[in-house]
């Protein structure tokens, strides 16, 4: 009887262990910290670091976009929070925006971040109520970033220097 218990327990334990190994190889964490973060995401207990998020928001409002992004990346290391990813995309937009030209590389990274935000909020459209922002939805931000990446004859229009950053 005891052998039977060992058999069942052993089978259950080793199947769980095998599932853990498959999960590790699928998620490819780069450190023990990432292992715990991925485990939190899988368990549904993942939360962003609110303190770091607020500090990033302060930096963003002071137009220190790179520093803000660093803070947001630390606040959401698993890139699982739609709101944080939206702000990261917005920081790419504001940093890359220029009166004469847009920084294509920053805008490209902005599109990646806003796509992540949209994917994470697939249930309902993502809306951010922040009076400091001129665009409040991920769809608006994405359209603006994609427009910045497109090349057209309007790029040579001298009046475009009058446009304003959102």
């Amino acid at each position: 009887m005891q052998s039977k218990i060992i058999q069942v327990a052993g089978l259950a334990f080793t199947i769980a262990y095998a599932a853990f190994i498959v999960w590790i190889y699928a998620t490819e964490p780069r450190s023990f910290k990432e292992v715990t973060t991925s485990a939190e995401v899988a368990a549904g207990t993942y939360e962003i670091n609110q303190e770091k998020f607020n500090s990033a928001l302060n930096l963003f409002r002071r137009e220190q976009f790179r520093a803000a992004r660093n803070e947001w990346q630390q606040a959401d290391p698993a890139q699982r929070d739609a709101r944080t990813q939206f702000y990261i995309a917005y920081s790419f937009y504001r940093e890359g925006w220029g009166r004469v030209y847009f920084d294509q590389e920053l805008f490209r990274q902005g599109v990646e971040a806003v796509n992540r935000a949209i994917a994470l909020s697939s249930g309902s459209p993502l809306t951010i109520d922040d009076p400091d922002l001129h665009m409040h939805t991920a769809a608006e931000l994405k359209a603006e970033l994609e427009q910045g990446l497109e090349r057209s004859w309007s790029d040579v229009n001298p009046l475009k220097v009058l446009r304003t950053r959102k």
Binding site: Q2, S3, I6, Q7, A9, G10, L11, F13, T14, Y17
Partner: peptide
């Protein structure tokens, strides 16, 4: 003996 054998066969070796 049978208990140890079960431990080796079903827990130790697969682990």
């Amino acid at each position: 003996r049978s208990r140890n054998r079960a431990l080796v066969d079903f827990v130790l070796l697969p682990s």
